[in-house]
Design a protein around this nucleic acid. Structure first.
Lengths: 205, 205
DNA sequence: GTGTGTGAAACTGTTCACAGCT
DNA sequence: AGCTGTGAACAGTTTCACACAC
């Protein structure tokens, strides 16, 4: 579908374009220019046009982009025109916050099972689900067609749980632990640890 | 202190080096080579040597880097040789998880106050603190010498709260909302929204 | 006039490869 | 032998500037 190889940084920007388009769509605005979109996000108009040009020609010269169409195209490109099933591992404070976070379902992500290794937590309700033992991992992944896992366990457990997840077929992991996972080539990991992020911000203070 | 301009990506990697060094230090290992460090993190040895060379010469030819010294140098470069005071805004499920997250204090970050605009939450305990009204923002920032804020409020409130934070003198914001904040030049924002991150991962599936 | 799409140019970041030290 | 520090080569990314369309 893309014309030529798409830089990684481009993919990271597309969700920002999508979010901003959804905010613009709510106001009823029909058309948007790369300049307006860029100003709202803090990138140049040329960058937006170049990024989009990797996937096609979505705009009209002199007019800009049709908001609804561009939003639709971006959802298609990012494969967000379907619901993705997510397995959440770790039912601590963070796990509970994630299980109750409404933005997932609003954006077509569904947490379909929650696992923890703490005996006292198993069977307890969490969001609309029930906490299950780690031994249920393979069944939870296969029965629900899970391809993405969220890792909300302590750092010392993260690598071992990641290994198990990958063995069951999970190909994408969102990791909250402050640790670099070692994973095979075909697995994608993204890190969202706040401490690591804070540690970069202090440099600039 | 740095020799010449330091690329942003380099700063983002330094915390990974630091975390890995701390894990190595726990084993009692004295020296580490750029090759070993790189293998554990998944970057090339040349990258590590080049990154460190922006700040000085910390290694010894033929031997590698002294673990404790390199750890100390990185903490100094990232200004992590002090405790940073953080203001948490938003006492929902995520705010509670953050207020109870032990890794902050272990890594020399201290949440010193928590604000929320929900009348029913004000006065309630959260972690070791008490939830305060938004009106206390300026006092909380000034009395505690806060320079970093964590924004754990709904997306629709994020920009307005960010504006208030910046007006009180906050220069760094860690934002959990799926929105691009518009801020003046001198303010740094980092985004840790899981939905935005998941939206990039689905591209590769 | 406004605004897109795109090669070319400029800039930024990574890897190579090797001198020099242990 | 093993390893660092670094200029030079290479690769990746952003910006420029302009033809073309509304």
């Amino acid at each position: 579908m893309p014309r030529g190889p798409v830089p990684n940084v481009v993919i990271r920007r597309l969700p920002l374009y999508l979010q901003t388009l959804e905010r613009i769509a709510e106001t009823g605005q029909q058309m948007v220019s790369s300049t307006e979109l860029g100003n709202r996000i803090g990138v140049s108009s040329a960058q937006i046009r170049k990024d989009l040009s990797y996937f096609g020609e979505f705009g009209r010269q002199g007019l800009g982009y049709e908001v609804g169409n561009l939003r639709h195209q971006l959802k298609r490109i990012l494969q967000l025109d379907q619901v993705w099933h997510i397995l959440l591992v770790g039912a601590g404070a963070l796990g509970h916050a994630l299980a109750n976070y409404r933005a997932f379902e609003e954006q077509d992500f569904a947490i379909v099972a929650v696992l923890d290794n703490d005996e006292t937590k198993i069977g307890q309700p969490i969001g609309d689900l029930t906490i299950e033992p780690m031994a249920n991992m393979e069944r939870a992944v296969n029965e629900n067609h899970v391809e993405i896992a969220i890792l909300a366990v302590p750092a010392r457990a993260a690598q071992s749980v990641a290994d198990d997840l990958i063995a069951t077929g999970v190909r994408s992991i969102l990791c909250y632990a402050p640790i670099t996972l070692s994973v095979p080539e075909h697995v994608h990991v993204a890190y969202v640890d706040p401490v690591t992020t804070l540690q970069t911000m202090t440099y600039y203070l």
